[in-house]
Write a protein that binds this DNA or RNA. Structure first.
Lengths: 355, 355
DNA sequence: TTGAAAGCGCTAACAC
DNA sequence: GTGTTAGCGCTTTCAA
């Protein structure tokens, strides 16, 4: 008398899904034919393909990504690596990339890189390793070691925001962006222009875009003969609160500048909040300009140098797909244009009332 | 003479990664021992484990998720399904969930549900099918059909924001939240209170939270004997612009209410922008209150009923992990508390100047 | 145009 | 404690 063996534990709960063999049986063909039909190989007769599709439909069959991945070496998944999951810029780039990737049949595996040790651990364990076909990284400040780890994956790689040597990249001209911002202020007559930047990494090693934006400010100031006035304040924390605190610090000084360029809009918005609370008129007493084109800029009437955000994600995703299809594409760099959006937070400089 | 066969095409480029057999050979044990050691099975002698770990390290081996998934039935991946990738609430819930899941060794596969047809297609093709061990859905307004499709996956499922019958859920008391908001206004003496809500779906079928928040407004108004004053304006589009437009519509009417409750902060912020541009004093001429505790609320000095956002994601993720570990947990519902944050956008009602 | 057979790289049941 | 043996569910040669 045969004892029916218990099914293995993981099969206990799930009702067994149709496998490729079930479809093959129902369609009266072999598994390979099913596989080929369903993936649209041209070498299958119309009639066979028809039957296979019907059988698959009837059993609501779809191939196990695990199994087909194992067999084919493809995962149909793209890894997207972001330094912060919640920040406006990253979220929108991811959104732009997602649409394109999804459309092309790829899934998106999201990786949040923390900072410091968490980041090191990430690159050590490299969870991307066999899970994805390609990687999209967003302006991640990378050490050489990290870059090497990414390279070692030996798969298509595109970055958004930061140019890595030898890696395809989509970005804006960050130097030009702040230069534009400063020019706008200069045109209005400002000379006393301070820059507020984001957190300076302990490792003195911030976002590439951060460095570039500082650089743009410097260049523009020097070109205007205001090199001696260059003055950069860095925030102690990210986002709005960082900008708010930086402005508070600025206000502790004996004299106020007439204008401030913020590295990115969230800092500018925080700065404006502080100014409002202190009843310092914007732009009457101080002009404020940002960079990004943040969704909330219109609410505080912030003048800003806007960048296409979702589009950067979309373009990057397309480049990735091209490389995946082509295999031998050489690294490209795409620089998308920015646009000065003038609103009410900038105006002619305040001048000391001539008593 | 034997011809060395060409490697299959997908192996051409990638340098072959160490497999479990390489590690086994180097450590002088069998593959199963390697597998068990590396996954921390207790039945392995310390000495063996030690050797295996060293060998693995030396070959920088880590198991192929594809293969181990196929063999074990686990993917170590959680699917997170969001209706919008870019909205503040969702982004923050995802961030909260991500940390917990990542910590527990799970990867996160992100799915953006569009609207309309895209959404239907999602549930038909059900890309989650064999890719994940469990699913987290964020306040997705689901038809019965969609719900069934999710159920059919037969895997742990937790929703954030919307209670689905028989499904574990983390949320706030949405009815209570707007009730609190209205009470705040009532206490200040307002009677003429209009509610601004988000887009009404064509299918008359919005977010559950949206319905509840409307309900809270209604209840509070009726309880105050102001049932006849109930007045709900719905925005034609999402987010700030929706709120801005809704307020503009309100201003086209012959008379203005003295206060507005917005279904969520982004609407309130848009409304305030419109009021500012029209130089209508807030709260002098009109009070505005929102619900969410949006990061930007402080910038426009918005009074709001704040909810814990990242925490909802974190709690949901933990519930998922518990179910994954336990298998037989029954559906639970966790309701997190909200907190009224009073700022400067609400005050005593404007009264017609008594000529 | 199709089928048979050999893996892909791992885990788990079962033996010892 | 550890090894042996079967798969997991596909894709891809290779042969017909």
């Amino acid at each position: 008398m045969n004892v029916v063996p218990d099914p293995p534990p993981h099969a206990v709960r799930r009702p067994r899904r149709a496998s490729i063999l079930d479809v093959a049986a129902l369609a009266g063909v072999s598994a390979s034919t099913v596989s080929r039909s369903l993936r649209g190989h041209s070498s299958i007769s119309a009639a066979t393909r028809q039957r296979v599709h019907e059988a698959a439909q009837q059993l609501s069959y779809s191939a196990s990504p695990q199994a087909s991945g194992l067999a084919s070496g493809r995962t149909l998944t793209i890894g997207v690596v972001v330094p912060f999951v919640t920040r406006w810029f990253f979220v929108n780039v991811v959104a732009g990339a997602y649409e394109v990737l999804h459309e092309a049949g790829y899934d998106v595996l999201l990786y949040h890189l923390g900072t410091g040790e968490a980041r090191d651990r990430f690159f050590e364990r490299m969870p991307l390793s066999r899970r994805v076909d390609a990687v999209l990284t967003l302006t991640v400040p990378l050490t050489e070691e990290h870059t090497l780890a990414l390279r070692a994956l030996d798969m298509p790689l595109v970055t958004v925001g930061a140019a890595l040597p030898g890696v395809s990249c989509v970005r804006i001209d960050d130097v030009g962006a702040t230069r534009t911002a400063v020019h706008h202020l200069l045109h209005q007559g400002h000379e006393d222009i301070v820059m507020i930047t984001g957190v300076e990494d302990e490792a003195d090693f911030g976002f590439a875009s951060s460095r570039c934006r500082r650089e743009g400010y410097r260049e523009a100031m020097e070109a205007a003969g205001l090199g001696s006035r260059i003055d950069v304040v860095s925030a102690a924390t990210y986002g709005i609160e960082g900008g708010a605190a930086a402005m508070a610090a600025l206000m502790d000084r004996p004299t106020l500048p007439t204008a401030v360029v913020a590295e990115y809009d969230e800092l500018a918005i925080g700065a404006i909040r502080t100014l409002r609370r202190a009843s310092i008129a914007v732009p009457g007493r101080m002009s404020v300009i940002g960079v990004d084109g943040h969704e909330m800029a219109s609410v505080v009437d912030l003048t800003t140098v806007a960048q296409p955000v979702q589009e950067q994600g979309a373009v990057a995703a397309r480049m990735l797909l091209d490389t995946l299809a082509d295999a031998e594409a050489s690294p490209t760099e795409v620089v998308l244009p920015t646009r000065l959006t003038v609103r009410g937070s900038t105006g002619t400089p305040w001048s000391r009332p001539s008593n």
